[in-house]
Amino acid sequence: MSGSRRDGFALSDRVTSVAPSGIRRLFQLGKSMDDPIDLSMGQPDFDPPEDVRRAAVDAIESGRNRYTVTQGIEPLREALRERYAHRCTGLATGEEDVMVTSGASGAIVIAYLALLDPGDEVLIPDPYFVVYRNVASLVGATPVMYDTYPDFRIDPDKVRAGITDRTRAIVVNSPTNPTGHALDEREARELAAIADETQIPLISDEIYEDFVYEGRHVSPREYTHNCLVIAGASKSLGMPGLRVGWMIGPTRFVERCHAVQQYTFVCAPAPGQWAALAGSRVDPGPYRAAYTKKRDLIVNGLDESYRVVKPRGAFFAFPQIPQGIEPQRFLDACIEQQLLIVPGSAFSTRATHFRLSFAAADAKLLQAVEVLNSIAADQVRDPRSG
């Protein structure tokens, strides 16, 4: 050193490799507005059912606020074994097991830490949920994208093309954030075949599994044992703030993940675990029916002004910005009218689309449709938009 004092709080390379979430910035912006049309956040617009709320309150009032065992309370784990027994057949034989985590994102962090060494590669769909790419950078791995544009379906040839001798995992998300695509049986079988051929495990994020609007939820785990399933209670039960997720995978792998959780999250929040247990008896059908109508309101409302691939699941649409409109100008126009959507560049190597959540009141969705159609018409007419 040449006489200069080193900054004691200089950030590590792993932290400087990731940017703050654009979604959270919009969340903060929405808090500063009087009455925004906020379609930026990926959370349900309904509260947990009464039984679920009561279970959380009862847990707090009865003193169940302390640490639980790392892997989660046994009644919840047993309920999850029963729920997933048809999909994860090893749960009945002891070859697979479940660990409760601090949200599905917590499960992704733990899975990455357990699977990936510095220099390893992880294949991620483009578009992607922001955690997949940034947590890979935090653990020193390299995220490698496989393209799913323009219809967001998975092309097995593109997945295979991304595999190298450094590939350690393949991330799959269905139903998908941000596009709403849901795997069909053909896609799931093709992914399973790749996992079996290469012995590269799939990390299958299925947090939106209860929100599939046509057909059934299809998991790659149905066709291969080489798959780690990640899901949780945040979306299905309207309790994202209680942070309860889970992972299901080979017992030897999950048991080693206990140690990772012990030194990171310790355990999932205790009241949330008891709430999730109560929620294991809840029928998601009414929520799914309501969100089907919201999905149709958005897709039909934007059809004439935007190219929108109809979402088959989750509660997002990922429309394409009309040709000729500069993405930042489009985003600024939305903010000027108190409409909060997320630019597609937050989820992708491209800036051609934007994400909106239709987990909102119908009145807000109708306002959003009106604003977006108005912006499309005005910007196309404005010669500066090119």
Rank of each mutant, 00 (worst) to 15 (best):
A59E: 04
I60H: 07
E61Q: 10
E61A: 02
N65L: 13
R66I: 08
Y67S: 09
T68S: 01
T70G: 06
Q71N: 09
G72L: 04
L76E: 08
E78W: 04
L80M: 11
L80H: 05
L80K: 05
E82G: 13
H86V: 09
R87D: 09
R87W: 12
C88M: 14
T89K: 15
T89L: 15
G90P: 03
A92K: 07
T93E: 13
G94V: 05
E95M: 13
E95I: 11
E95Y: 03
E96R: 14
E96D: 15
E96M: 13
E96Y: 14
D97P: 04
M99G: 01
M99K: 06
V100Q: 01
V100F: 03
T101I: 13
T101N: 08
S102T: 15
G103F: 14
G103Q: 12
A104G: 06
A104T: 09
S105Y: 15
S105M: 15
G106C: 10
A107D: 02
I110T: 13
A111F: 03
A111Y: 00
A111M: 09
Y112M: 03
L113K: 15
L113Q: 14
L113M: 15
L115Q: 06
L115I: 13
V122M: 02
V122S: 03
L123T: 05
L123V: 08
I124D: 03
P125D: 09
D126W: 01
P127W: 05
P127R: 09
Y128G: 07
V131S: 02
V131R: 00
V131Y: 01
N134G: 03
N134S: 09
A136S: 00
A136W: 05
S137Y: 15
L138D: 01
V139T: 03
V139S: 04
G140V: 02
G140R: 00
A141L: 10
A141W: 14
P143M: 14
V144R: 07
M145K: 10
